[in-house]
Amino acid sequence: MLSFNWIRQNLFSSWTNSIITVVLIYFLASIIPPMFDWLFFEATWIADDRTGCTSDGACWAIIGARFYQFMYGFYPTEEVWRVNLVYALLPFGILPLLWDKMPFRKQFLIFAIVYPFLVFFLLYGGPGLTAVASNKWGGLLLTLFLGLGGIIIAFPLSIFLALGRRSEMPAISAICVVFIEFIRGVPLITLLFFGSMMLPLFLPEGLDIDTVLRALVAVIIFQAAYGAEVVRGGLQAMPKGQYEAAQALGLSYWQMNLKIILPQALKITIPALVNTAIGLFKDTSLVIVIGLLDLLGIGRAALADTKWMALHVEVYVFISVIFFIFCFGFSRYSLYLEKKLNTDNDSENK
């Protein structure tokens, strides 16, 4: 592809294009090598503290020194295998939901149903496992727990809310409208505050819900309300004829929605749904206001350590890379789904 002809046609097709190409090459040439120098070639990878970083490059030693906290928060070291097990099983818990041609998908689907309960059991502890208070969780563990947990559990809720809002039964529709508008009308921070500070005041004495769970509930209802409006947009885009054809065939309300309407409506809302999911995944950092330290929170805590002062760039680059990997993954997956579900003429085999 990168033949002489290709270069001439695409980069030097006219005088203006040639000038732009030359300027851009000069620009990239002056940016990229120093960037790589800083990131890799001149970086310090291992050091005991800030003073050990004498080179001109990045001081990645801070990431190494704090790696445990970035991944697990303050989870007790002797119990950390439980978190590692949760991480290791994560692909098997999620892939069967996302990939319809997964080998042994049926068996893995059963595992996917068990997985959330297993996660709770492993992380919190229970019979046979020592309890680990959730205020010890942090870093990537907390980010994934709140982010993925929120996205996955909120998804079916947002479908019900969207269907409910369009329901012909006035009571159901009213409840859904009030819920959606109220939750959507307040910032996530206030929901987190409400969950963590005010909810315990209303609950009876002794019934104490765990801080992380309260945050998870706040994240779920927030995401459900946002997702509901996205799904409703998809439902509204469905031609009336699809409803009529389904009704004329005698399908019930739920059959019509499950088999005909939702598969099509959700397909057209994939980009918007993934957009809100990515937004939420990053918004989980707000749990810092109720004293939980997610990936970003751990990073800020690391920066406050006098041994590693003023390494903002390294810490934020590292955190950004991790967030980017996940969010980019969501985005690629949504493209794959859109392509897979395309049934128009232009698609070869489905």
Partner: peptide
């Protein structure tokens, strides 16, 4: 018991 055929076909595209 009643079948219906529409002007716009209304087949399920998915």
């Amino acid at each position: 018991e009643v079948g219906m055929v529409f002007q716009q076909f209304n087949l399920f595209p998915h």
